[in-house]
Write a protein that binds this DNA or RNA. Sequence first.
DNA 1: TGATTTGCTGATCAGATGATCAACAAGGAA
DNA 2: TTCCTTGTTGATCATCTGATCAGCAAATCA
Lengths: 225, 225
Amino acid sequence: MDGMARPRRLEPEARREQIIEAAIGTFAEVGFGATTRDLAQRAGITQALLYRYFASKSDLAETVFERVFLGRLSPHWIAELRDRRVPLHGRLCRFYRQYTAAIFTYEWLRIFMWAGLAGEALNRRYLGHVEDRLLAPMRDEIAAEPGIAAPDMEAMWALHGGIVYIGIRRHIYGLETPAEPGPAIEATVARFLAGLAAPLSGAAAPPSRAARPAAGRSARASSRR
Amino acid sequence: MDGMARPRRLEPEARREQIIEAAIGTFAEVGFGATTRDLAQRAGITQALLYRYFASKSDLAETVFERVFLGRLSPHWIAELRDRRVPLHGRLCRFYRQYTAAIFTYEWLRIFMWAGLAGEALNRRYLGHVEDRLLAPMRDEIAAEPGIAAPDMEAMWALHGGIVYIGIRRHIYGLETPAEPGPAIEATVARFLAGLAAPLSGAAAPPSRAARPAAGRSARASSRR
DNA sequence: TGATTTGCTGATCAGATGATCAACAAGGAA
DNA sequence: TTCCTTGTTGATCATCTGATCAGCAAATCA
């Protein structure tokens, strides 16, 4: 079938790239427990050659890590988020369409999740950025909108989680999801804003009698486990 | 410190339980790649003894899997969800408070996520149940509420994801979250219902001009990748 | 054409890992 | 106490895994 056998010798640059690409796919699929022989096979080289390009398996993993996560978030998005000439709803939708276009890939989501479970520091650092550089500006923009209750950070995380969960369902759990997240994003953003605009109206009544039995202290403080 | 050395010989039942408990903690922490020696050490026994109680490591993993996931969802919750004598908001909050009390544990969330990445079938099956037995009834209850737009399944998943993401942030990513999810749940449910009640009000305007450039066909159909 | 550089491979090693088994010893039965 | 059942262990095995290295061969140069 594939008539021309690929060249046996490659430029170091190209070979290195080839290994990284293969590693991204492999790590995404089976996690960082992938064997060096798996990695080599997927790259179409011998296992020994890996060590000509990377000092160790974790060195390769580190490289993959940076390749996948660094530079995916465009600072331009945040600038656009602050452009108040555009209606708020439109800005939020545009941002989340761009954001999900960047991270809703099999590789990104899975490697991010594997890394999260492994306790990688880069992971927490990334989410710190999400809170500080994305959610906080979004919250500020929403708070600046007249006739809307300013959301707290938990509310922003709920919006974020509701959208990101689409990608998790698809790429982590392997479930069916809409082919395009766009409509779901628009609906979710619209509900979110409308929900903030009408804080205690109609059916969204205060908690019922049966609603708050357990929960000792109300606990706004943060703590883990 | 621990003055009394524990008995060397245990009833098979008790020993088996001890191994399972240790395995739950170990698998949650490091995943199913945990070594049998790790598992044995955490259980306080020799590695060889594991094979007296479980045919293989994957046999033990299977047992852990069932132990953690089976019987966590109470059918009673769904019955309560349908009790229309209670206001809708209260029902939804009560349900999610019960649900999160059951699954927002280090062990449950992490093992579920490890299993999801590993492509376990039980995982998808569980989420199928979530959609059919939890989200669908919730949607029906909301649809039955007067003055509220009936949400589609994607909307229900967005609500669900927004809430579940709290647990993911805490136990998978190791981030700070409110000690109690209760208040966040109430706020999220309230926003969700209010957002459905006021479909196109105020700031939640239709998508702006800059909002729908890409996205060829609108795509309600489902497909993966 | 012959010499030199260097990308690449096969062989190999030490340690880790899942699994097995003969033998030991704790606790009850006779 | 003695015997017997059985929960438990240390030793061991075959295989896997990350890593190393001498040597081959493709491209380049003289």
